[in-house]
Amino acid sequence: MTHEIYAFLRGPMVWISLTVFLGGSVYRLASMWRLAKKKDAVIFHYISVFYSLRSLLHWVSPFGSLNMRKNPAMTVIAFIFHVCLIATPVFLSAHVILVKESWDISWWWMPDHMADLLTVIVIGCCLFFAGRRIKRPDVRYLTSVSDYLILAAIAAPFITGLWAYHQWPAFSAMMLLHMASAEILLMMIPFTRLNHMLFFPFTRGYMGSEFGAVKNAKDW
């Protein structure tokens, strides 16, 4: 039974999750594009590549905006979190080997102890964000159950991955949970608030264009 589940998660489910993630992302972007054309045609007249990039560049640089400078702890943690969140799965040796075995392509991977560290950082950051949601009254006020679920969904593949790698008790079950939770997370991206991964360049870029090209002002 375990083996069948493993085979499913390792085989078809990978394709399903990748398809939902990529297809879903393309669908979300395309349908939003269509909706914008239909009801917000104004966006296309005002969006400017130069001012979009000007704004984006400030907002993807650590401390590039005043608000980031005013909240140094949040800035550092948010940047480290996002870097580790993406770098860990992409450059994990076990993942690179899996891809190598399947399609015979590979890239640089990081030493395992480094991956361990990055994983712990991601989990730590999730705890920080959860703590921030509980502790800060304004954030607590905004928070709904789904916000905690999203944090849990992000932390899950990292916790289970760490567990499985170190072969702590019941690690083979953890391995299954690891694969399943990662696949779920991937599929969640286009359809939850995680979609900021897709829409961030557009929302920021549009605000940058409005401020830069029309209002002659900075937006950072």
Binding site: M32, W33, L35, A36, K39, D40, I43, R133, V139, L142, T143, S144, D147, R193, N195, H196, F199, F200, F202, T203, Y206
Partner: peptide, 12 residues
């Protein structure tokens, strides 16, 4: 689209 994206993207 603006309304939809703004409402769905805010991470609280």
């Amino acid at each position: 689209a603006r309304l939809k994206v703004y409402m769905e993207t805010c991470v609280h």
